[in-house]
Every structure is written in C-alpha cells, then in structure tokens.
C-alpha cells in the first residue's frame, strides 16, 4: 500500500520532470536569455561607485576623513563613474548603430522577397543565368533548380 503510493509519487514526479522535454514549443529553443547585459552591468557598477561617493561624503561630514583625502578620493571616484558612464554611452551608441543595420538588413530582405527571385546562379563559375535553364549558359555545368527557402 505505502509502497504503491511511493511508486505513484515517483512516477508522477518523473512525468513532471519530463514534461518540459515533450513540449513542442520551439520558442525557448536555443535562447537561454542573457542575465546581465553590458548596459545593466555598467549601470550596476556605477551605482556602486555612487554609493561609494555618498559614503565618502558622509564620512567626510562625520569628520572621519581628512580634507585632502576626501578631495583626492572624490576625484578618483568621479573619474571612475565617468569612465563607466562613457562606456555605457558607447554601448548605447553601438546598440543604436546595430539597430540601424538590423533595420536596413530587414528592409533589404523584404525588398528581395517581393519578386521571388529565381536563383540560377552557377555553382561552378558563379554566372547569374538570366533564364531558367538546366545547364549554365557560361560554362555548361549542370544547375540544380533552386529550392524555396522557408
């Protein structure tokens, strides 16, 4: 009786474990999402530096740090934060550029797809045959009819 229940529990757990494998959902395939993007990482590091700066400010006001130390450290931290900010802006610019390229590519693709361009390019010599032929008009090599991509 108890043994039966145990087997039942183990069996249903096995099912529970295997279920995700059986799903035919393709969307999640091959895309383990990135947890920390460069932008987020830089932002986090900046927050740490800001925190350090505020701590420094506070300790200075509390009279724990000598003025010359305070000045030097403050400049140092600010330079560090600025470096991180500059890197962040750089990444954003690059991302923006990247997005532009992506858009361009997408537009070109769409353009090309409009007339289903027959592809009779010779695999041997590279000649673009203007007409649907079985053999290359330039070198005579056999051409395979282009398959529709999908």
């Amino acid at each position: 009786m108890e043994l039966g229940i145990t087997f039942l529990i183990a069996g249903s757990l096995a099912l529970f474990v295997m279920l995700p494998l059986l799903s035919r959902d393709q969307e999640g395939q091959g895309v383990l999402p990135v947890d920390v993007t460069p932008t987020a990482d830089l932002k986090r590091r900046r927050l740490v530096v800001y925190e350090n700066l505020q701590d420094l400010e506070f300790e200075y006001k509390a009279g724990k740090i000598a003025p010359e130390d305070y000045e030097a450290l403050r400049n140092n931290y600010r330079a560090e934060a600025a470096g991180l900010m500059a890197a962040s802006l750089e990444v954003e610019r690059a991302d923006a550029g990247e997005a532009l390229i992506e858009r361009e590519v997408a537009a070109r693709r769409a353009e090309r797809r409009q007339p289903p361009a027959p592809d009779y390019r010779c695999p041997k010599c590279g000649f673009e045959n203007p007409l649907p032929v079985k053999f290359c008009g330039e070198c005579g090599a056999a051409l395979r009819p282009a398959k529709k991509k999908g």
Partner: peptide, 21 residues
C-alpha cells in the same frame, strides 16, 4: 551546453523531484 531552455527547465524540475523523494 545546448542552450536549450526546455532541457534546463526539466533539470530544474529534477531538483524539486529530488527534494520530494
């Protein structure tokens, strides 16, 4: 290794199954 989300999900569930057993 394969970056397969559903395999990972199955593995994560295995830790819960391990706990129950």
């Amino acid at each position: 290794y394969l970056r397969s989300l559903k395999t990972v999900r199955s593995a994560e569930r295995a830790t819960l199954a391990f706990f129950v057993m």
